[in-house]
Nucleic acid binder design. Structure first.
Length: 669
DNA sequence: TTAGGGTTAG
């Protein structure tokens, strides 16, 4: 055993519990055995080659570590395995680092991990230690692009320029290089630029691969231009490209993203019949996810059942977390049990993480605690995706110090934080109004000093940081221009980015500038989303601009969003707070006419208004109407209580109090 | 040699 006692700079000793020993690890591999072996060989050579030339004993030791690791990882997909080993090969240079990695593989059954979480959630331990940012490995996150470009002109440039340069070269680089650059564009949200580059490549006569088609289709999907995606598919078939699973996945995913669930499913069936092939689990999972996102739970179950013993851990994960979010605990638990009995799947850290998240979100702390012993019992390998949930839990509650403690813990245990860990922490700083820390973390991510680089979520979160405080709003606007502006666009903004800034401007009572951004978004061909639409409407009505709200509401292209009850609730509430009862009533009639069922939040503003103006008969009628459609009265009481406490509508408080008490007794009876 | 499905931002 050559593992050193001190594995880290700060001298933290990592306990090694329950090392796995397998006599012949190669037998445990699934799928591409030789391919994988080659990868591992490459990794081995890279890691050991530099620092250990000729040291036979250490090589032997290294081989033993690799064996252990494979045994542990056998439950994961071959792709994860390959990617991970490639990353490790790229990042680890010295034998010291190699030992760190090896010890990481041995932490599988380290009981102190769940114990830490248990304590942390019950009785969070705060740490004053600063996160050792320097010790988080310097990765090769943004390397690919820079590496290529430095060979071209020594300047850093956008992937788009790289592609132009590549097209000029003679002979042109391989399609793999082009693919990498389009992926780079797509990763930063430059979907339009990606499709434009694809056109240029096409004109220059570059021979495309299936992978190119899949990436570009994906971009069309994100742009909600799936009709173009489908026509691209037609061209590809004509030009003799094989339609592989990746291309089908991109199309199905794109159609789902456009909410065309029926189209997606019929395409899925047709293309499979056309190629006479068996659908992969990944394809099924895309359908599952799409159905869940479209709130078509019945269909999701149907798909799950037709999968016929082919569900994997992700299928279970999608369905279970969806059930939990819908608060269907019975169903979720029975599915969880079914999964635990299913010998073909091994529950992983991500699954337990998402279950835990749903439980924490619903404030079921006791049940959340139960997940941890279950994980130990199942011998789950703890990974960042689980800890991200714990980090998020603290961040959401403004306990960013505790979140930092969790990150510390991860680092000490060699559980490498992901971009989601840092983005979550960034949000934590934002919610705790620690702008300085947020800025510093973002800078580290942008500069590539961490093992991951910043993405559009990081940038949007920092934007929220600036915008949530009136004193830094100006800085936020500048940041927006610098990061998302047309001239110096680092990331291509999306509906979330615009929603963030628009919401902040409305809140800062600057509806004019908010409208400007709304127009700018439209001029940049960025589609509004249901949430952004709500943000804009709410912004108009709370700023007393019913006219703009109404005209935005009536724009034909927004009509698709008006099928959501939330929108109508915003309009009703908006009319009421601006003293327009007749208008509120008109909206109420309008939604019923459209076939949308009013819910609690549709009725309460009007009810409060009736109470406030002492229209007791009308209020009583409304209450009985709510009763008729099955809205529990205690929920109404809760709403009134909130309105009372917040002095909503500047109502006569005493009247509201009396009404509330009266309703409470009614609810009890 | 490159890639698809579960978690992060409104």
């Amino acid at each position: 055993m050559i593992l050193p006692d001190k594995l880290y700079g700060d001298g933290v000793k990592v306990p090694l519990v329950g090392a796995v020993s397998i006599s012949n690890p190669w037998d445990l591999l699934i799928g591409d055995r030789f391919y994988t072996r080659g990868r591992m060989q490459k990794f081995y050579n890279r890691v050991l080659g530099d620092s250990l030339k000729g040291a036979a004993k250490l090589r032997q030791e290294a081989y033993a570590r690799l064996s252990d690791w494979e045994g542990i990882e056998k439950s994961r997909s071959i792709r994860d395995f390959n990617n991970y080993s490639a990353r490790i090969a790229g990042n680890f240079e010295t034998i010291d680092a190699f030992h760190r990695w090896a010890s990481c593989a041995r932490l599988v059954t380290n009981v102190s991990v769940p114990l830490f979480c248990l304590n942390a959630i019950d009785d969070p331990v705060c740490t004053d230690e600063a996160i050792p940012w320097d010790e988080i490995r310097i990765g090769s996150g943004i390397g690919r692009l820079q590496r290529f470009y430095s060979g071209v002109s020594r300047e850093s440039a956008a992937a788009e320029d790289v592609i132009t340069e590549m097209l000029r070269r003679k002979p042109m680089p391989s399609i793999v290089d082009f693919n990498n650059e389009i992926v780079e564009l797509s990763r930063k949200g430059h979907y339009l630029k990606a499709t434009e580059s694809f056109r240029k490549m096409n004109m220059a006569g570059v021979k495309m691969s299936e992978h190119t088609i899949s990436i570009v289709t994906n971009c069309f999907g994100k742009l909600k231009l799936m009709d173009q995606g489908l026509s691209l598919l037609g061209h590809s078939i004509k030009s003799g490209l094989e339609i592989d699973d990746h291309v089908i996945a991109s199309i199905v995913d794109g159609l789902m993203f456009e909410n065309r669930v029926d189209d997606a499913i019929s395409f899925f069936k047709k293309i499979l019949m056309f190629g006479n092939r068996h659908p992969s689990t990944v394809l099924y999972n895309i359908l599952l996810k799409g159905s869940c996102q479209a709130h078509d739970y019945k269909r999701a179950i149907q798909i799950f059942d037709t999968m016929d013993f082919e569900h994997d851990i992700i299928s279970y994960s999608i369905l279970i977390s969806h059930l939990l979010d819908r608060k269907e605990f019975q169903e979720a638990v029975s599915l969880l049990n079914r999964m635990l009995c299913d010998t073909r799947v091994v529950p992983d850290s991500a699954l337990f993480g998402s279950v835990m998240k749903s439980l924490l979100d619903s404030n079921y702390l006791q049940d959340a605690r139960m997940i941890l012993p279950l994980m130990v019992q199942q011998n789950t390998y703890f990974q960042a995706n689980f800890f991200n949930v714990v980090v998020g839990y603290f961040c959401q509650r403004g306990m960013v110090k505790h979140a930092e403690g969790v990150v510390q813990f991860m680092l000490k245990r060699c559980i490498t934080p992901t971009v989601i860990t840092f983005n979550t922490l960034l949000l934590g700083y934002c919610l705790s109004k620690k702008l300085h820390s947020a800025e510093r973390l973002y800078q580290l991510m942008i500069r590539g000093s961490l093992n991951v680089s910043a993405d559009i979520v990081s940038a949007t979160t920092l934007l929220k940081c600036y915008c949530s405080n009136p004193s830094s709003l100006e800085k936020g606007l500048k940041f927006f221009e610098k990061t998302f502006g047309k001239k110096t666009m680092v990331f291509a903004p999306n509906a979330v980015t615009y929603a963030t800034i628009i919401q902040a401007l409305f809140k800062a009572k600057n509806p004019d500038l908010a409208s400007e951004y709304l127009h700018e978004m439209k001029s940049r061909d960025i589609h509004a989303s249901q949430k952004l639409y709500g943000v804009a409407l709410n912004g108009f009505v709370t700023n007393g601009d019913l006219e703009s709200a109404n005209s935005y509401f009536n724009e034909p292209e927004n009509d698709v969003f008006n099928n959501n009850v939330v929108v109508w609730n915003i309009m009703i509430k908006g009319a009421i707070i601006n003293g327009r009862f007749v208008l509120a009533k008109a909206y109420m009639d309008g939604m019923i006419k459209r076939g949308i069922k009013p819910d609690l939040k549709s009725f309460t503003p009007m009810l409060i208004a009736f109470y406030a103006h002492n229209f007791t008969i009308e209020a009583d009628n409304l209450v009985s109407e709510m009763r008729k459609i099955g809205i529990p009265l205690w929920l109404v009481c809760n709403e009134l209580k909130v309105a009372y406490e917040k002095s909503w509508l500047a109502v006569e408080k005493k009247r509201l109090w009396i009404a509330m008490k009266k309703l409470e007794t009614e609810a009890m009876s």
